[in-house]
Write a protein that binds this DNA or RNA. Structure first.
Length: 320
DNA sequence: AGCCAGGTTTGGC
DNA sequence: GCCAAACATGGC
């Protein structure tokens, strides 16, 4: 494993330790993270974050793609590249005053070790976290999660990713990096002007009107950016006023896009896993009841735990 | 061919 | 409020 100081020498002293806020940025004790920045490159050493698991395989986000060992997405109004070198992640281009934005996006300020250690009463949840030390739950822009998870309904991950990509490629701003084209997703205002037949022709099926009508409501003032400050119950109910958004999609938006770590989406995989591994939830008959009971059982970070359980179920790491 | 996928909507009790 | 059926598409 390459140590940070070796990497500094290898890159000709390109980096310096970001001293001003280093203490604040290394609250994640277990990983002893080391954050440096220089010349538009953010270097994060000593984090467990696994790029392929977190950005691609975990299916919490559908905008990243891998190309020749590097990971690319349109994020914060530009194309971003993330590359792993030894035990460090290099993210670029990043301005100095955006360092905390990116650490928040990748959820690197959270102590996942403490999260795991609080699960001694829940062996199945503990096992899921121990199996996936490189998984982080991203803090994505709420509008992106809203579009992505309206598309996700009764759909499979491969086609979700293709449709999300199509939305950006057809209607979103284009950025170039390393001779790749990365598209942002269209703004609510831009999508509100797209015709339903255009989306149907692209293969969106019955989700076409959901996307367009939701875009119109957001463009007309739906308080998407305020959901993170609302109590969970209020935000969960409000989101379901949008077409194509039911209880499960609302939970995904709250968990992945609004910082509501307790939101517990129950899809087919999570339902199977909960029924197989959580006998104390056996009396919850419906998915809504399961979600509510799981939030009660697992507490304020129930949703983070959900994402570990989801991946273990979907990839066959835990038997169903 | 028929079932499944990170469900939601609609209409009927 | 609970329940069944319909809903587009593509992979297996």
């Amino acid at each position: 494993m390459i140590q940070a100081n070796e990497l500094d020498r290898a890159t000709g002293g390109l980096y310096y330790i970001f001293r001003a806020t280093r203490d604040k940025l290394t609250t994640n004790k277990e990983e002893e993270m080391n954050v440096q920045w220089k010349g538009g490159v953010l270097k994060i050493a000593g984090t467990a974050l696994d790029p392929n698991l977190t950005l691609i395989d975990s299916a919490q986000c559908f905008t990243w793609r891998e190309a020749q060992g590097r990971y690319y997405a349109a994020l914060f109004d530009r194309a971003i590249c993330l590359e792993q070198i030894g035990d460090a992640l290099l993210v670029s281009p990043v301005a100095e005053d955006e360092i905390e934005d990116f650490l928040h996006y990748f959820d690197l300020m959270r102590d996942y070790g403490a999260l795991r250690d609080r699960l001694t009463a829940h062996p199945a949840a503990l096992r899921a976290l121990e199996c996936l030390p490189g998984l982080k739950i991203l803090n994505q822009p709420p509008w992106e999660t809203l579009l992505s998870f309206i598309i996700s309904a009764n759909n499979n991950v491969g086609r979700i990713r293709r449709l999300v990509w199509l939305l950006g490629a057809q209607f979103g701003a284009a950025y170039t990096l390393d001779s790749l084209t990365l598209n942002a997703l269209p703004s609510p205002e831009a999508l509100a002007e797209v015709g339903e037949s255009a989306l149907r022709d692209l293969g969106f099926g019955y989700r076409a009107p959901y996307l367009i009508d939701t875009a119109r409501m957001v463009a007309a003032g739906f308080p998407l950016e305020e959901l993170s400050q609302m109590p969970y119950e209020k935000a969960h109910a409000l989101l379901q006023k949008l077409p194509g958004v039911g209880p499960k999609v609302a939970d995904c938006v709250l968990l992945f896009g609004c910082g509501h770590a307790s939101a517990f989406p129950v899809d087919v995989w999570v339902e199977r896993l909960m029924r197989a591994w959580f006998p104390e939830l056996a009396q919850a008959r419906t998915r809504a009841a399961l979600a509510s009971a799981a939030r009660e059982l697992l507490g304020e970070n129930a949703g983070l735990i959900q994402q570990f359980l989801f991946h273990c179920a979907r990839c066959g790491i835990m038997e169903l």
